[in-house]
Design a protein around this nucleic acid. Structure first.
Lengths: 173, 173
DNA sequence: TGCCGATTTTGACAAAAGTCAAAAGAAATC
DNA sequence: GATTTCTTTTGACTTTTGTCAAAATCGGCA
């Protein structure tokens, strides 16, 4: 009960416009956000090119686990793809909570495990599937992305050029 | 102190030959192993082809985090690349330990975070680096793998055919 | 409605990587 | 030390994907 009160007191809710950057590359991430309404993506700037790393929708968590775990500057940007509402709290608040209520480490562990498993599947598909197979997998598993993100974003997410994705799509939907 | 005693009592040490499978695809993983001496790799069987997922050396942990977290059958095999010695304990023992001593969840969380970060870097390199770049990155960051694993294993780890890796290597070491 | 800017598609060509097959080189076994 | 087996390299060719450039399409918005 006390744990719940402590959590409720530190939470803030914000409504933010499409295009807003919740986190910028090179800065140390200080927040966890829960995406209440809208959509977002994480992306990396590689030699001037914009490479999407993940997409997030209602109910997903937005943060840089890397930056949180290491305390180093994030190499990802987090951008809102639509006008959105987020619920946020700071790492300092979270760490204080973890210290006072160590049982939250269990949640942290389970959440991280979940992230890991999803990423593992993604890595596997890069390792031995063609771009076409990855695209069709995406249609099946995460159709939201197709509807809510642009072709360019999706192409870089799949690791192919925009033109190639356009041709894959043209062949047979 | 009690925690240490509990841990010490459940640990077993085993010496196993090269080629031994610590975990087989399709079976539910039941163990954590610490690799004391030797080397190992995780691999996946994809349409008859053998795809390496990771390599491990002295001091590394061998397990299927996926199988542990979900309770589902593992899709990876774990194979010893050399005669090796491992220290092992079961998931049941670990879970009992986590229940009795919840502070171990902190270690679990940190370990998983570490895994995640390494995998994230690997995924990034698939997403926007060429095979040649990935190979040179491997030379720099994990030279052990080059020395202790076969070309075929390394090729599938990098996501290229064996012939392509051989040609990359021929160009300029 | 009509224009502007952004996104997506298409074409032509170049580069990267895969496949199949054979040869060369190492390593293990007798 | 010869033979067998496994690993690595090389060659010829095909397929996949990337790049650059131009055309087509889509979406707001004046």
């Amino acid at each position: 009960m006390e744990g719940q009160m402590a959590l409720a007191a530190m939470v803030t809710r914000r409504e933010l416009p499409k295009g807003h950057l919740l986190l910028e590359q090179g800065k140390v991430c200080q927040h966890f956000y829960l995406l209440e309404q809208g959509s977002a993506r994480g992306y990396y700037n590689h030699e001037g090119k914009d490479v999407s790393l993940w997409f997030a929708f209602e109910g997903d968590v937005l943060t840089s686990l890397y930056s949180y775990a290491t305390g180093k500057p994030s190499y990802t940007n987090i951008e809102l793809l639509e006008d959105s509402a987020v619920i946020g709290f700071t790492f300092d608040q979270l760490n204080a909570l973890l210290e006072s209520y160590p049982e939250f480490n269990l949640i942290g562990r389970l959440l991280t495990e979940q992230y890991f498993i999803e990423l593992e599947e993604r890595t596997l598909s890069f390792q031995f599937k063609t771009a076409t197979e990855r695209y069709h997998e995406l249609i099946t598993k995460q159709p939201q992305i197709l509807q809510r993100a642009s072709l360019g974003h999706i192409a870089s997410f799949l690791g192919v050029s925009q033109e190639t994705l356009s041709r894959i799509r043209a062949k047979r939907e």
